[in-house]
Design a protein around this nucleic acid. Sequence first.
DNA 1: ACATTAATGTGCA
DNA 2: TGCACATTAATGT
Length: 197
Amino acid sequence: MIIESLLISFGAETRTYQTGEMIFREEELPSHYYQIEKGKIKLNNYTMDGKEFIQNIFSDGHSFGESLLFVDRPYPMNAVAIEDSVIYKMPKQNFLDLIKNNPEISLSIYECLAERMYYKYIMLYNLSFQNPVAKLKLLMDYLKSYHEDKTPYSFQIPLTRQQLASLTGLCVETVIRTIKQMEKDQIVKIEKRKIYY
DNA sequence: ACATTAATGTGCA
DNA sequence: TGCACATTAATGT
């Protein structure tokens, strides 16, 4: 979200992470601003019985965990690379200086945070009440909202069924069965195991 | 090409 | 649902 040259002039450095590598973990104190140059990361938690819950998944150009830089609290989740990724890392203080001196950047951070909250509101409501079809549909609607082409089946869901399950709190089998049902109902199309919506 | 692992599918309690 | 197990795709050697 912040342009590269600005990041660098404010002391950001790039670092590569391999698939599966942790960028930060629960309980740690936030010390940096992170922005993805290339790759994909997820924010997750594990329930006491070991089940994963994915808060969100981010890819190229997105920042993550920046809201925690404004509060003096430890991270409530882990950040894990799910692809080999290159990530800009800028010390917290530099980040704060940067937004203090740049109203433009500051505004874009607000927008970004607002966007995240929007997603959270939708998902929270969604997760607590809806049936599996509604949950998956809402999640896919959200994902597709970033896709220019709005025609049916034009958007390939960039997530595995496993990940869909972890994002919605459903179990994999349910996701698999539900997606199949949705295909019958013409809501999605499946080709070579890929989901088109 | 073959072995291994992750992801997907299916049947059944 | 959740578990066990079959099938298929992806990845490593």
